[in-house]
Amino acid sequence: MSPVYAANGSLDPRSLNYESSDLNEITRRQMNEDISAYRYDLDFCRNQLAAPDLTAQETRTLQIRILDCGHNIRHCQHRIQQLDVQARSAALVPAGGYRSQQNYRAAGSAPRAGGAKRPRISKIEGEEDENGRVGGGNGEADMVIDMNGASTVSIQRLGFWKCRLCTSQKYLDSGSNRVPSAPCKWPLKDVSKMLNHFLDMHTEHAPNERCEELGAALAHNRGPFEYWLTRTRSQELDDMSVIDDLIHTLQSGTLPEALRGLNRAANAFPNTVSGIKR
């Protein structure tokens, strides 16, 4: 099946045929797709940054987004390199479908000497580096340092997503009792607000439609989603492919069970499998 590209440059997951049961092969393919999408987003932001009528805040937002895209591309490349090393050493993770993050930690992560965890080093609140990126205290960006002192990935707390359900005809025709009562005027930036917006609201749309839109929002804001999981909800993810599994499950129209215990709106969201509310 030939791949079909979405409007943001990423591959439409519905056009892909994952016949292979090799988790590492699927992950490598997904990482390459993410790299293509991030590069498309990077080119778009650079073109937008050249516009003559940008405000200072818009310029700042685009600069942060450009940095985030670059870090996400490097993260995907590092992940592919890790998979190649695992393949060469014949230390592959056993094939299988989706597993909980506890199983990923038990079966998919490499052991660390002495049980030491990777230290996470943040910049002082309000401090800016030479690229103008704001450090950890206000949640704009946070640097992760591995055991050798090398930077591996940088994630930021806030993202950017314009709700497309707020402009859909189904929502506009739903009458005065619709929720939210008016179309979202400002972009959704905080991941918690994204979750609550699509899982608590837009009941005029079917649960699978709301999950698909939430999956698209989190795929576009993977860094902030990682920040929310690892910092806000204090989840220790040794294998970051868990994040991809959560996003792809949402994009397929189903709410991942792992999210129900991390968010109030997710816990009350209708079970799209059985048709009942938990």
Results as ranks from 00 to 15, higher is better:
residue 123 K to A: 06
residue 109 S to I: 15
residue 103 N to Y: 08
residue 107 A to N: 13
residue 147 M to N: 01
residue 118 R to T: 14
residue 143 M to E: 06
residue 144 V to L: 09
residue 101 Q to A: 12
residue 136 G to C: 01
residue 141 A to E: 05
residue 97 G to N: 09
residue 122 S to G: 13
residue 127 E to N: 03
residue 112 R to F: 10
residue 149 G to E: 02
residue 114 G to Y: 04
residue 133 R to P: 00
residue 112 R to K: 14
residue 116 A to T: 10
residue 128 E to S: 06
residue 145 I to D: 00
residue 146 D to E: 07
residue 114 G to H: 08
residue 153 V to D: 01
residue 110 A to D: 14
residue 122 S to W: 05
residue 145 I to A: 00
residue 117 K to V: 14
residue 110 A to Q: 15
residue 145 I to Y: 00
residue 141 A to G: 02
residue 151 S to Q: 03
residue 94 P to L: 02
residue 134 V to F: 04
residue 150 A to F: 03
residue 145 I to N: 00
residue 153 V to T: 05
residue 137 G to W: 03
residue 127 E to P: 00
residue 124 I to T: 11
residue 142 D to W: 02
residue 127 E to G: 02
residue 120 R to E: 11
residue 116 A to I: 12
residue 95 A to Q: 12
residue 149 G to I: 01
residue 95 A to I: 02
residue 143 M to D: 06
residue 96 G to Q: 11
residue 93 V to C: 09
residue 121 I to Q: 06
residue 153 V to F: 00
residue 147 M to H: 10
residue 129 D to V: 07
residue 106 A to S: 14
residue 142 D to K: 06
residue 119 P to V: 10
residue 100 S to G: 15
residue 142 D to R: 06
residue 99 R to I: 14
residue 115 G to L: 11
residue 147 M to S: 08
residue 94 P to W: 07
residue 109 S to H: 03
residue 129 D to Y: 04
residue 138 N to M: 06
residue 131 N to C: 02
residue 111 P to F: 09
residue 98 Y to Q: 12
residue 103 N to C: 07
residue 126 G to V: 05
residue 147 M to T: 06
residue 151 S to Y: 01
residue 96 G to A: 10
residue 135 G to Y: 01
residue 117 K to C: 10
residue 144 V to Q: 05
residue 126 G to W: 08
residue 121 I to M: 09
residue 101 Q to D: 10
residue 101 Q to W: 12
residue 106 A to K: 15
residue 132 G to M: 10
residue 128 E to I: 07
residue 130 E to H: 03
residue 95 A to C: 14
residue 102 Q to K: 14
residue 93 V to R: 15
residue 112 R to T: 15
residue 147 M to D: 08
residue 123 K to R: 11
residue 105 R to Q: 12
residue 108 G to V: 07
residue 98 Y to W: 11
residue 126 G to H: 11
residue 111 P to L: 13
residue 141 A to N: 03
residue 101 Q to T: 13
residue 152 T to K: 02
residue 106 A to E: 07
residue 105 R to G: 09
residue 137 G to H: 07
residue 98 Y to F: 13
residue 151 S to M: 02
residue 109 S to R: 00
residue 94 P to M: 11
residue 122 S to R: 04
residue 132 G to K: 00
residue 143 M to Y: 06
residue 110 A to R: 15
residue 102 Q to P: 00
residue 142 D to N: 07
residue 104 Y to L: 15
residue 125 E to P: 06
residue 97 G to F: 02
residue 145 I to S: 00
residue 143 M to R: 05
residue 123 K to H: 03
residue 138 N to K: 08
residue 132 G to H: 04
residue 101 Q to K: 13
residue 111 P to E: 15
residue 153 V to L: 03
residue 139 G to Y: 00
